[in-house]
Amino acid sequence: MKLPAFDYACPETLDEATALLAEAGGDAKVIAGGQSLLPFMAFRLAAPSLLVDLRKIAGLDGIEVADGEIRLGAMVRWRDILDSAALARALPLLPAAIGHVAHYQIRNRGTLGGSLAHADPASEFPCIAVLCGASVDVVGAGGHRTIPADELIAGPMETTLEDDEIIVAVRFPRWPEGRRWAFDEFALRHGDLAIAAVAAAYDMDGPHIAHARVAVMGATDTPQRVPPAEDALNGRAPDDDTFGAAAAAASAAIEPTEDLHAGAAYRRALVGTLLRRALAESCAREREAAE
């Protein structure tokens, strides 16, 4: 399929880029890696009049692991996340999840800013950003603002970004020492869109779980935290009974989507299975690290 015609701009500064977007009045799209936008254009699900390419704008591709927070530029590609030894130490959940993103060539081009702006409910990065309480820095013609990740995602393929706003960075709070994490995903093939996936993180307060966070993606219309599953974990010992209760709570709490790949009941069951399995693995990983 050949792509619909558009005008192309490749500005060298964010000011120029936001001015172009403001002028186009909602009919323009930002392009970064293009790994979701080009298929959308091929299918005529998007036919923007103008594409504003970010590739010549400097300073958007940094990975900075500082004491207080981790700052990832919007043009950081999946491959860069997988290659970063600093991220593997500071936020191991992120590369574990990003390993499930699409296929080899796509991971070489796709960007995290593009993934957030695309807001596909089956995308890994928005789910991890929501789970971790990340902040999204955006710049528009009128200035800067910061949006909590869960407020950025408004619905499937829908964000609260204004027409002239560009995502420039995502900031993750640093994790305390010893935080445990879990991620598991089910797709028809490795790299295909998730039918369901779960992510979790928690600390240990003595023998008990504390500060538990659980999020689900692919099975719901947005990536979202699941508070009843978090409540089932907090204050309990990290054992099979607790994990089973959290899995049951997650299954019961979500409103699963349906499509040709899977019905709602299947996705509901799958979320429970994945969460129980992922949480058990979070403990197994601790035991292995201790040995």
Binding site: G34, Q35, R109
Partner: peptide, 13 residues
Amino acid sequence: GRPVRSCLMFARQ
């Protein structure tokens, strides 16, 4: 140096 899909990239890029 990186394998990419040439249908997912505009020539201009």
